[in-house]
Design a protein around this nucleic acid. Structure first.
Lengths: 224, 224
DNA sequence: ACACGGCGAGAGCAGTGCTCTTGACTCTGA
DNA sequence: TCAGAGTCAAGAGCACTGCTCTCGCCGTGT
């Protein structure tokens, strides 16, 4: 039996990798994505730059890992914020607020995932599932409590979205759902990126209003 | 009389400046903002890197100029797309589509102004007016044709937005207007930044739906 | 006619991502 | 037990970046 043999190596490797990622995230938070430098990460972790390449293939791969971690972090927050026992609109608002709070706490990471893609860098496919996590929380609320509007649309809606997204959602709510998801990140993004300077004063209140408007659009019942 | 004297220098200067900006925009479009390099701009324009510093103070200032030009470009498109004689919702939709079209044609420039701010770079104040240009087109349509909803809100709205933004808009429409403006760029941004991959198939149709929803929210009369 | 000032060129500094080679260290299988 | 395989940190080096400073050229305004 190979008591620890390979294990000790694997463990050391995992720890070093963790240290690199942590330091990278620290620098990302402090100086932004563009200023993230493999060399300075290496310096801070206490090794020479070339050694880092044993753990992460390239700067881009490092970014990819940070992106996935960030998606997961928002998603987790969103999931945690939702109390399935609470009234629908309260769940809804809690999730919107949670996303905003996370974004304010981690603006650089938010920019990394919802801002312009780092140029010359195409987000690889493995980020897609992580990206959907937050959206699924919204969809879950809608699926459970949303009721489609009375006025039937013009039925052209069927081809607008991809098939099989938004499982368990009434078709008439699919487009409003995607619109609401967009609105959430659009609003938070505008705040984070400074577009609301000289425009919106009370951003939290504003987000609540927008969330409420969106809640109506996806057919959540009015507040008690 | 100083026939051409100062004029000839000034002209040469203006031409060189133009050439630098044009080449910079070309490289921005081709490789993205982060890959924009003063040295390579200089190389392409045919001078040495240090010389371009006579025309632009820094890479950041170059970016600032490109940002302002980009804001103006979308704004101009939006203004041109609006036919004040057309039915309100048609005007509205035309503006939304125009913004989307411009964004699809100039994704890098769109990313520059509506994506994450280039890290380590704070957009200076002089970009703010240019940024508002597109918004004003939307506001104009709302101001002329929007009617506030019947259900009076809870009046807390007064403090949410800054004073004096959105001139000539009924207070009850102010928040929906900002929300609509946000929704427009949120939706276009999500498309440009690839967030709709595997989600939205027909993006133009989707934008139309969202625009229509937003039009209702800001009280534009229903289509004839 | 002349001094000033704008201009382009070049060298140079400090930093970057990334590659390749070298030497040491550790774990493993016979 | 011990040689060989595999892994690792380190260093040098390449090509690139933003930016500064100094040097001469030459048009310009007085």
């Amino acid at each position: 039996m190979r008591s620890v043999p390979n294990g000790v190596r694997a463990r050391a490797r995992a720890e070093t990798t963790r240290a690199i990622l942590d330091e990278a995230r620290r620098q990302l938070a402090e100086h932004g994505a563009a200023a993230l430098s493999l060399r300075s990460v290496a310096r801070e972790v206490g090794m020479v730059s070339s050694a880092v390449y044993r753990y992460v293939a390239s700067r881009d791969e490092l970014l990819t890992r940070l992106i996935i971690e960030a998606y997961d972090a928002v998603g987790e927050r969103a999931e945690a914020a939702r109390d399935p026992a609470a009234p629908p609109r309260e769940q809804w608002r809690a999730v919107w607020r949670a996303v905003r709070t996370w974004a304010l706490e981690h603006p650089s990471e938010y920019a990394l995932i919802y801002g312009s893609p780092v140029p010359g860098y195409a987000a690889p496919a493995e980020t897609i599932p992580a990206a959907g996590r937050t959206a699924l929380v919204l969809v879950a609320i809608i699926a459970e409590h949303g009721t489609p509007p009375d006025d039937d649309g013009d039925d052209g809606d069927a081809d607008v979205l991809e098939d099989d997204v938004l499982p368990g959602l009434p078709p008439a709510l699919a487009i409003p759902a995607v619109a609401a998801w967009t609105q959430l990140f659009g609003t938070v993004g505008f705040e984070i990126f400074g577009q609301y300077q000289n425009v919106v004063r009370d951003r939290e209140a504003f987000l609540d209003r927008v969330a409420d408007e969106a809640a109506t659009a996806v057919g959540l019942p009015a507040e008690a």
